[in-house]
Nucleic acid binder design. Structure first.
Lengths: 196, 196
DNA sequence: ATTACCATGAAACACAGTGTTTCACAAGTT
DNA sequence: AACTTGTGAAACACTGTGTTTCATGGTAAT
């Protein structure tokens, strides 16, 4: 028998202009709304209306607004890591902190919305995952620190520092942020000057 | 005129045995349910039913399940701080970390449910608030670190380390936890060996 | 250009969870 | 005993989610 029309089809044909346009409209709509209020005060009907697409169409692409936001967050974290990861090394701990600060400052609006809008949890999760991969390549630096804990600590502390930074009305400079991040996160994790 | 019966009365008479029994039942009911599933999968009807009280009665005491959980979390944080704060000082950075580890280990069940059940946000918030008060008493230690950031970092990193610790099947010892917490959180914040 | 395909929009619906009103009753207070 | 007040239950309105069905119009291939 022919498969009956399913409610939520799988879009193998992502090349269809209608699909890409719908998906793009939904993403931008959500980010626009996140500028005004947190995720749990935003309804799917609202996202769809702002995007100019039908309510039911939303579910043809995403199962929930959380999933949509998480997708955006996960992609953005990957983009961040691709750019800044090479800057992290044991000898120059400041380089990594500066690379991070510069990237986030350049994408300030997006990151503000993600961090304060409800995606902080997903950002932390994905950040931890990628940090874990990074840690797996490098050797374990401290014998007193399970590498899993190091990843969680590094990711969480970084996300938290970024959240604070982006929420400031009159934020400190990238250099000052890098100093804080380097001394509180990078250096304790990546150097062995802490082994007594 | 006599004030008409309001829907959600203010219980000035907290001494009424019925009130204290209801409130206590609701708290224990929520904590019991948190052992099985996260907060957002728990309904108010479920909390009330488990507590053995009527659904509408819930709203006479709390506006939402989040508020109920936050109340529990806030009180527990205050209790924690009263006990461990005296142990924190610049000369013996390990003492504070040990006091924290011991307290949480003793209250392991409660803290597991709070941290993984959905109160982590409120715990972080209250932890930050009390850390800020603590930091206000002590002078600012690092000139490169705004004390507000120090509070946020200390609170978040601590909550995150505790969450990891309590989730382990075969957790590390209190001593090992204290070592990690001391070197990643307490020492960077409270000693000035980091000023180059 | 005709055809087959398929994403979309709209209407109608089922459903769960929240929050409120009202009232009878029972437990607590004086 | 009389008064006060917290509780339980029923009935309800409301919001947001998720689904089904069908007509329409854009898309792609021969």
């Amino acid at each position: 028998m022919t498969q009956s029309k399913v409610y939520r089809p799988y879009f193998a044909t992502t090349s269809d202009p209608r699909v890409v346009q719908t998906r793009e409209a939904l993403r931008e709509s959500l980010l626009e709304l996140l500028d005004k209020k947190p995720l749990d005060e935003i309804t799917i009907r609202e996202i769809a209306a702002t995007a100019g697409i039908g309510y039911t169409t939303f579910f043809r692409h995403h199962t929930s607004k959380e999933e949509l936001l998480n997708d955006i967050a996960a992609e953005e974290i990957v983009r961040l890591f691709e750019l800044i990861l090479p800057a992290f090394n044991e000898t120059d701990t400041r380089a990594g902190a500066m690379a991070l600060g510069c990237y986030v400052k350049e994408h300030r609006e997006l990151w503000s919305r993600l961090l304060t809008g409800g995606a902080a949890g997903k950002l932390r999760e994905e950040f931890t995952r990628l940090t874990r991969e990074f840690a797996a390549v490098h050797g374990n630096i401290h014998d007193w620190l399970p590498s899993e804990v190091g990843s969680i600590f590094g990711a969480s502390a970084t996300i938290e520092l970024l959240t604070w930074w982006l929420q400031q009305e009159d934020p400190i400079s990238v250099e000052q942020f890098a100093t804080i991040h380097e001394r509180l996160v990078v250096r304790p994790l990546m150097t062995s000057e802490n082994n007594n």
